[in-house]
């Protein structure tokens, strides 16, 4: 009988160990999916959820804080996404945080990113609806870059006409030939040409990557969801966007100058005496230079890791742009 008891004890220990392991595993998995523990619900309305599904993760500042609980079509342009968020994260998420749909790695799962805006606001509460920013697809990024490129091409041709006129010996413009201004304008041209060729390069490379991904070829290395690389790529992509934007900005300045010169509205005297214009021109040249060097840096970064990640936040970009304006 004692023998039987010891057998039963060993059997019992085994059964308990097996059952306990199963329960622990189920609990840990459930915990990862926020099935247990206290959560609260918030929602966001998207125009397009890009294949997001129930169960996908919700990230705040890059940390998994919850899961998507429900996706519901409200009308032809609105999809409501309900998210269960860990209660512990509630105090960090503010009412003005932005929700966007992103991807975990190039080919990974979809997820909802919640990004803080940095602007003070009360913390979120149960049932709150977050503002959203639509995900920027790789195609969109390309479109912007190509547009910028086209703009630059127009300006470059304008500027060329402008400098041709200036360098003509018979023209009054020859006065300006040896001046610093003329040098500067030439420098702009060089920079802008360079910039535009870089932009074209980026566009081509992005294009190649996107088509690779779309054809399912995609370098397997890109499957690694390494957050460091992801961040770097994000940064690079943001930079390109930023530069494109500033290019558009100073392109517009140059456009107005050259427009005025070409339309004959601005005479020589006007050109020489109008200090505002001179200041503007100098500034423009300066920012064009900055832009060009920034761009070069970004290109280097891009070439270092050319797995361009295309999701980045519009809001971030806008903030950056604003800061640029203020600077």
């Amino acid at each position: 009988m004692a023998n039987q008891t010891s057998k039963n004890i060993r059997l019992g220990a085994m059964v308990i160990a097996g059952t306990a392991l199963l329960i622990i595993a189920l609990y840990v998995i459930g915990d990862k999916q926020n099935l247990f523990g206290s959560t609260f619900r918030i929602s966001a309305y998207f125009q397009n959820v890009n294949g997001l599904m129930v169960g996908h993760n919700v990230r705040f500042d890059g940390i998994d804080v919850g899961t998507v609980k429900n996706i519901e079509i409200i009308n032809d342009t609105t999809v409501k996404v309900d998210m269960a968020i860990e209660l512990e994260s509630q105090k960090f998420i503010h009412k003005n945080a932005l929700a966007s749909i992103g991807t975990d790695g190039l080919m990974g799962n979809k997820l909802v990113n919640i990004t803080p805006t940095g602007v003070p606001s009360p913390q979120v509460e149960e049932g709150d609806i977050l503002k959203t920013s639509e995900p920027l697809e790789a195609d969109d990024a390309l479109r912007t870059l190509t547009q910028t490129n086209a703009d630059i091409a127009v300006i470059v041709s304008n500027l060329r006409t402008f400098t041709d006129q200036m360098s003509s010996p018979n023209s009054v413009w020859s006065v300006l030939t040896d001046t610093a201004a003329s040098e500067n304008i030439k420098a702009i041209l060089v920079n802008i040409k360079q910039t535009s060729s870089y932009t074209a390069l980026v566009a081509a490379e992005l294009n190649a990557i996107v088509s690779d991904v779309q054809s399912g070829k995609g370098t397997l290395g890109a499957l690694i969801t390494d957050s460091t690389i992801a961040t770097e790529l994000n940064q690079t992509a943001a930079n390109i966007q930023l530069i494109s934007d500033s290019l558009v900005y100073f392109t517009a300045d140059l456009q107005s100058i050259s427009d005025r010169l070409l339309s004959g509205e601005g005479t020589l005297s006007t050109l020489l005496n109008d200090t505002t214009l001179a200041v503007n021109l100098t500034e423009t040249i300066q920012s064009a230079r900055n832009g060009a060097s920034d761009f070069e840096e970004s290109m280097k970064a891009l070439q270092d890791n050319f797995l361009v990640r295309h999701y980045f936040k519009k809001k971030n970009k806008m903030l950056e742009k604003e800061r640029k304006h203020i600077d």
Partner: peptide, 9 residues
Amino acid sequence: LRQCFFIGY
């Protein structure tokens, strides 16, 4: 129980 012991343990 005896069989559980032989079969399982």
